[in-house]
Simulated scan of single mutants.
Amino acid sequence: MPARESAGLEAVGSVAVRTFAAHQSIDTARTRAVRHAATGADTDRFADYDDDLTGGQLYDPDAEYEPDPEYAATLAPDAARQRRERVGPTGRPLPYFPIPGPVSEHGPATIIAMCNQKGGVGKTTSTINLGAALAEYGRRVLLVDFDPQGALSVGLGVNPMELDITVYNLLMERGLAADEVLLKTAVPGMDLLPSNIDLSAAEVQLVSEVARESTLQRALKPLMQDYDYVIIDCQPSLGLLTVNALTAAHRVIVPLECEFFALRGVALLTETIEKVRERLNPELDLDGILATMYDSRTVHSREVLARVVEAFGEHVFHTVIGRTVRFPETTVAGEPITTYASNSVGAAAYRQLAREVLARCHAE
């Protein structure tokens, strides 16, 4: 791939991203122009990468390259080596994922299923914060709460028990428009299809339906032109609701807690993804495995992450989400970490994940 190499691009699986060294040589004036286009702010404020964040709204994309002590403790067993050799938490060279430019028009949407049959691995947290980070970069995002527990709705400050109309009604009632179910969130550019316990009845009722696996796909079809990304928060099972999400999706992100029991179920999930691809949705693709709740201070976390990288290679995201008390705090606050603690390590991680997801999508 000589053309990519000459442009300072490095192949990461099927993804071509600019390397850190190439990024350092980018013309400063061009960098300022891109940031000005994205933020509308005075470009003089971005003369140096070391400028402070202003009002919690601006983000230094190179913050990860010089991690603070908290970041170093949770993500890098040897922070000095990480800075010196540009080695990421996964043990691979950490590419530079550029800040995405603004988009002039929206749609059609790419649908991402956030899926893992094991509970408590960070699906809902990742759905909320990845969506918020993509919205921060100017993308229109729709979050679909497809779990009867309604955790995604709760995490965005919605009380599921007070809802009269949810995604369940959108699935089961003919003639109901998606606009009647949509809720606006506090994050500009990010909307929600909420859920509550009523959705548990859908799994039984859909059994007798014709083309029952495609019910969610048909419900989302009228919304495709209005959004850039639709992210579905799946329930922790491989039942009919999850199969519906996989049938509707273009990509799957698998959040994986860096813990041995979580690792055991990934093989079963990838087998299910393959079956859905062969029988129902040939467009479905495994976008990546996202390591969550990682703490390099424990040997167990490092061993699990190493095994995942060994087994799945470039399908493992370079971005790793570390443990931080900020995530449970945001659930109580009912907002994403990108707004609740904008300058935190967790917010920086999900912004990097958003850039990595965009880079992977644009590479195809």
Results as ranks from 00 to 15, higher is better:
D78S: 12
G138M: 06
V34M: 14
I197K: 07
L268D: 15
A349D: 07
L170E: 04
E66Y: 14
H36W: 11
I197F: 06
Y227G: 04
T19W: 06
C361M: 12
T43W: 12
A177P: 04
Y294D: 02
L9Q: 09
E278F: 01
D179F: 06
I128P: 03
T19D: 12
V141E: 00
F312Y: 15
L280A: 10
E5C: 03
V187D: 01
R86F: 03
T330H: 00
Y59D: 01
I99Q: 08
T331I: 13
G122H: 05
R35F: 14
D226N: 13
L206R: 08
R360D: 12
V103K: 09
V276H: 05
S214R: 11
L9M: 13
A63F: 00
S104I: 10
R323I: 08
D50M: 11
A219G: 03
V266H: 04
E310A: 15
T215K: 07
K123L: 08
E274P: 06
R212H: 13
F312T: 05
V12W: 11
L256T: 08
N116T: 07
C234S: 05
V230T: 15
S296H: 06
I111A: 09
L134E: 01
A348W: 06
T330D: 00
A178P: 15
P95H: 07
V210K: 09
Y340S: 02
Q217E: 15
R4P: 08
D233A: 05
L183T: 12
V158Q: 01
S237Y: 02
Y340N: 00
E259W: 09
R140S: 13
T331R: 01
V181I: 14
L280H: 10
T298H: 13
I273C: 01
M190W: 03
R4V: 06
L358G: 06
S237P: 00
A47H: 11
T90A: 13
V254C: 01
V320E: 01
E259D: 14
Y49L: 07
C115F: 09
P188M: 07
D60T: 09
A135M: 10
L193R: 02
L134K: 04
T28S: 14
A363I: 00
V34Y: 04
S153A: 15
I232S: 04
F20L: 11
F46M: 03
V12C: 13
P236Y: 03
P328E: 04
H106T: 07
F261Y: 15
E180P: 04
